[in-house]
Design a protein around this nucleic acid. Structure first.
Lengths: 258, 258
DNA sequence: CTGCTATTCTATAGATTTATGGAAATATCT
DNA sequence: AGATATTTCCATAAATCTATAGAATAGCAG
């Protein structure tokens, strides 16, 4: 009666394997992770992941064939992005699984978190403390990713500029750094640097994609000098450059964070 | 100062790709799905997945290298099992992602669910109704999987025997069938058959692994003639064969379900 | 139209994966 | 110990994947 149950089932597993094909290659996982931070064009992705453009493009085609990423054309540029939240969630689950199963992953995480304790700040704790103003939130991802979406009130200090800007950070307040997610090494490194300089610092649990997925508010673009001595105005989506955080006051008044 | 952040990061993605390697091959996904139902030895897995023993063994070695499965030796047999619940959860998420992103998957599901509506019964609804006794629960997976763990009170009628045993099922009660999970085709097919014969029938949402993961009670081994006209005794873990469900009464008294 | 730029397509050499026979290893049973 | 059964290891041919150079394509600015 049925044509072939067997073949339907085989076909189903073949479809699942299409997704496997994306995550069988480390560079593709890296690209996907990047795309979960926000959209990017081919060249930017290639540079960040350390690939030749043609190679990056080839990888992206494969990811597109698996429908995990989508594109938006703008003039001669092609911007790639994760096809849905579900894709980023999958990546998180993959990370959790790897951490659960592969001792090597845990070891790498430990190698980085030299500072000792790996305790992280929960999202709810962060929200509360931001509202009380007794914490400084640091987004240590590249500027592009910060601009594509960040925790409201967070300062953008990409890891490579952290040492140079340390003196702008109030040493009397605990610093909470965050980055791309639980497997991203940027925030743990930032915390390590901060602690060596005498700051109290911890990482946020997870990173930006998980924050967004938790339904919490995000801000886009540049926040011009948020939380300076004189709080100033809104215009939160402005794209004006103002990369420097001149003053980092201990006063973080609520308002945007929820 | 740091030896190489870059290399640490690359190494991390390489670790994630180890897991990707498992799910890049459809047969390995099938094996993993099978293992999420319960442990099995190499030969049983090979037969069920339609593989030569050596091929199956090779696949299993790869899965073992990725730490997604573990073994238990018993005499000359080697029993494989999913290494943790996390593994099965990952497989579920993969399925959800595939269904979300790949139209082909949705199409296949529709092809099977010819009966029209694809509405499924939730776990909580099922629990309530089992307690009220106005539902018959059918486990349509192979007997081995039923014995490795099933919903308490469910009857084991592997799909291929369903037609032959239809007359044992009370036509006045709705039937709820379940199988391996949301992408498994056994239960939808069972429902199709049942409806054609005039039964009211629906699928359970998801399947056995999700049920277990939800923390709900499971039973192992053979339930000898549960819920017959004379309810009889316990001895729920007995391994005695008693595959036939002679009478399927509408009376499903509570007690085991929760 | 003519460059110019960003991206994709095509071709290819080298590496990897797959399925599978046949040998080897391991445990059990006489 | 020898025979048997289950599983893994080894070798191999065919298929696939990877990175990349070079050519082709498409939007944009003159």
């Amino acid at each position: 009666m049925e044509i072939s149950i067997e073949s339907k089932n085989t076909e189903l597993y073949e479809q699942l394997a299409r997704i496997g094909k994306v995550i069988v290659n480390p560079k593709r996982i890296e690209l996907l992770d990047l795309l979960c931070q926000g959209e990017r064009n081919v060249e930017a992705l290639a540079v960040t992941a350390g690939l030749k453009i043609t190679t990056a493009s080839a990888h992206l085609q494969i990811m597109r064939a698996a429908r995990l990423v989508e594109i938006r054309r703008e003039g001669t540029h092609v911007y790639y992005r994760a096809a849905s939240e579900e894709v980023c969630r999958f990546l998180s689950v993959l990370g959790e699984l790897a951490r659960d199963r592969l001792a090597e992953v845990e070891r790498i995480m430990q190698d980085i978190a030299i500072g000792g304790d790996t305790e992280r700040v929960s999202r709810t704790e962060l929200l509360n403390r931001v509202r009380r103003g007794d914490v400084v939130v640091l987004d240590v991802r590249p500027t592009e990713e910060y601009e594509a979406g960040h925790i409201p009130g967070a300062y953008s200090i990409p890891l490579e500029h952290l040492e140079a800007r340390l003196d702008g950070i109030n040493p009397n307040v605990e610093v909470v750094a965050y980055c791309r997610g639980p497997l991203c090494l940027l925030a743990p490194q930032a915390v390590d640097i901060l602690r060596k300089r005498g700051y109290r610092a911890r990482c946020l649990e997870d990173g930006m994609p998980e924050w967004r997925r938790a339904g919490l508010e995000t801000a886009a673009g540049v926040e011009d000098k948020p939380h300076t001595e004189n709080p100033a105005q809104g215009d939160r989506t402005a794209k004006r450059r103002s990369r420097e955080v001149h003053t980092v006051a201990s006063q973080a008044e609520g308002g945007h964070a929820r």
